[in-house]
Simulated assay, not measured.
Amino acid sequence: MELSKHMEFIFLGALVLIGVSAAATAAVPKLLAPAAQITSVKTSATPIVEVKAKRLTAEEKAALAE
């Protein structure tokens, strides 16, 4: 097989790998990942998880809707 015949497929494969790796390592915007506190309460036999986070303001909701 001649390499020059398959250069287009090699280029597209490299492009796909670069795109996937860029998407996998992209930072999460601050509005999409609000700081949440997760605490575990061990008062009963069944574990209970309590999640506390701040509510979104009207400006944050509008920014997410766009």
Rank of each mutant, 00 (worst) to 15 (best):
A63H: 00
R55I: 04
A14R: 01
S4L: 11
A53Q: 14
I10M: 07
L56F: 12
P47W: 06
S44E: 15
L64K: 06
Q37A: 13
K52D: 11
I10H: 02
T25R: 08
F11R: 13
L31E: 10
T39N: 12
V16L: 11
A22N: 08
V51H: 04
A36W: 01
F9Q: 15
A14V: 05
A65W: 02
V41R: 08
A33M: 05
E50V: 14
L56W: 15
V41P: 01
V51R: 08
L31P: 03
K61N: 13
V28G: 03
A65N: 04
Q37W: 02
P47A: 09
A65V: 02
L31M: 03
A26V: 04
L3E: 12
K42T: 10
A36M: 07
S4N: 08
A63P: 00
K30L: 00
A65L: 05
M7H: 05
I10F: 03
A62F: 01
I38A: 08
S44K: 15
A58K: 14
A33G: 04
P29D: 02
V51Q: 03
G13M: 04
L56M: 14
Q37C: 08
A62N: 08
M1A: 13
G13T: 09
A58W: 04
A45K: 15
P29L: 00
L12F: 14
M1K: 10
E60T: 00
A26L: 01
L12Y: 14
A26K: 05
A27I: 07
H6M: 06
T46D: 15
K30G: 00
F11K: 15
M1I: 13
T43H: 09
L32T: 08
K61G: 04
A62S: 10
R55K: 14
T46P: 07
T25S: 12
E66R: 13
A26E: 06
M7P: 00
A53C: 10
M1G: 12
T57I: 05
F11L: 14
L12I: 12
F9E: 15
A35T: 14
A23Y: 06
F11Y: 12
S4C: 04
I18L: 08
A45M: 10
G19D: 02
L56D: 12
P29S: 01
R55F: 04
A63K: 11
V16P: 01
T43E: 13
E8H: 05
K52G: 04
S40G: 15
L56N: 14
Q37I: 11
A36C: 15
L17W: 03
A65I: 01
V16G: 03
G13V: 00
L32D: 13
R55L: 14
R55N: 13
L15K: 05
A24G: 05
I38M: 09
V28T: 15
G19R: 01
F11M: 11
L3D: 07
L56E: 11
A53K: 13
I48L: 13
S44N: 13
G13S: 07
G13W: 01
